[in-house]
């Protein structure tokens, strides 16, 4: 079929779907639909990971992004009850500036593609590097220190989020009295 292997066909289809869903995220009016399209985009990217034989990364991508982060996004959007009608209309100047900046970003990214020819392509599909065992070996031997630093960073962020989210009883009481 056009001289392409099954992997190449899958890559093409997944890429097409990923880009289409990503565009839908931006173009859909309803924020809830937009979040759901983003989840579909994540699934397509997880498919790409599978094609690279990185099964662990693929499933963790789904668990963390689609299963946890996007659920919280959906939570907030649903509770805020954003509808298509309440969408604010931006001023023409704001939209113009946004368009110019977006266009500049596009130029930079297209420019970055020029250097891509010089990269050496690693055929990751045949290697076993993405399997859980190999990934664990690499993470806990070669990159142990950066890995632990990242985990401490996450822990600090967690504690910070709890501190911000914690209800300050004193100020709350004052508000009640003022009202």
């Amino acid at each position: 079929m056009l001289g392409l292997t099954i992997t190449q066909w899958l890559f093409g289809i997944l890429s097409f779907l990923a880009i289409m869903f990503a565009l839908m995220v931006v173009f859909t009016r309803n924020p809830v639909n937009s979040v759901l399209y983003l989840v579909l985009t994540f699934f397509c990217i997880a498919g790409h990971y599978l094609l690279l034989n990185a099964q662990f990364l693929a499933v963790v991508h789904i668990v963390v992004y689609a299963g946890a982060i996007m659920v919280l996004f959906l939570f907030i959007i649903m509770l805020m009850n954003l509808n298509a009608d309440t969408e604010p209309r931006k001023h023409i100047v704001t939209r113009l500036i946004a368009g110019v900046i977006g266009g500049m970003l596009l130029i930079v990214m297209v420019g970055a593609l020029k250097g891509a020819e010089q990269l050496t392509i690693v055929r990751a599909g045949a290697s076993q590097i993405g399997l859980v065992k190999n990934l664990g070996q690499v993470l806990f031997h070669e990159f142990l220190f950066p890995f632990e630093v990242a985990s401490i960073l996450l822990l600090a962020a967690l504690v910070g989020a709890i501190m911000i989210g914690k209800r300050d009883t004193n100020t709350n009481d004052k508000k009640v009295i003022n009202n």
Partner: peptide, 23 residues
Amino acid sequence: NIGVIYLLGVVSIGVYGIMIGGW
């Protein structure tokens, strides 16, 4: 070879059915 994580992944996706239906 990632059966257990696959299970956790599918369970975490199961939340969407309830959330979408309820909303």
